[in-house]
């Protein structure tokens, strides 16, 4: 690490697990999570030269969230891309309903995956990453009031799904 700026491999080594977890909670399945991690690390690699030393997890969370939302938008534009060639590459929520919910965490993940993308993103950034509403507003590019609403509505939907 030079001047507080980590190298690409340091980011992968030190924050890879964090990235994978955030990606998995956003994507809801392993295959998409792996793709998100790869794309995130590509963007990290390209963006390291402009990285300003600060909160690396926050910077990484912003990137992985942007990658996720970019992919969501791309799939909306091209619905035929919604399902990949991998058996476990599925889009929420319909297929997620078929997932065996043998354990509580899978049940929660399934409920989380069923949320609208913007709600899920806000909830994950708040409850998985631990971001403040201000930080989430910055990542999502919306007012804090919108973040507040998304988190609350997301939690209400989650509670209903978990009942």
């Amino acid at each position: 690490m030079a001047d507080g700026v980590p190298t690409w491999e340091e980011v992968a080594r030190d924050h890879g697990r964090f990235l994978y977890n955030v990606a998995y909670r956003l994507a809801g399945n392993d295959a998409d999570a792996q793709d998100l991690v790869q794309e995130t690390l590509l963007r990290v690699r390209r963006g390291l030269e402009t990285y300003q030393p600060g909160s690396l997890p926050a910077w990484l969370s912003r990137i992985v969230t942007n990658v996720f939302l970019d992919e969501v938008r791309r799939r909306r534009r091209r619905p035929t891309d919604a399902l990949g060639d991998d058996a476990d590459r599925v889009l929420p929520p319909s297929a997620a309903a078929d997932v065996a919910t043998e354990d509580v965490s899978e049940e929660v993940q399934t409920a989380l995956t069923s949320l609208p993308d913007e709600f899920r993103t806000a909830v994950v950034l708040c409850d998985v990453v631990g971001m403040s509403y201000d930080e989430i507003a910055g990542v999502q590019g919306v007012p804090v009031g919108t973040v507040r609403s998304r988190i609350h509505r997301g939690r209400r939907m989650l509670r209903t799904a978990l009942t």
Binding site: S105, Q109, G154, R155
Partner: peptide, 19 residues
């Protein structure tokens, strides 16, 4: 109560190991 339950459920999700 509902908010607290949902919030705790997500915060209680275990960390996953990468494949």
């Amino acid at each position: 109560d509902d908010v607290n339950i949902a919030r705790a459920a997500v915060r209680g999700l275990p960390e996953r190991d990468a494949p």
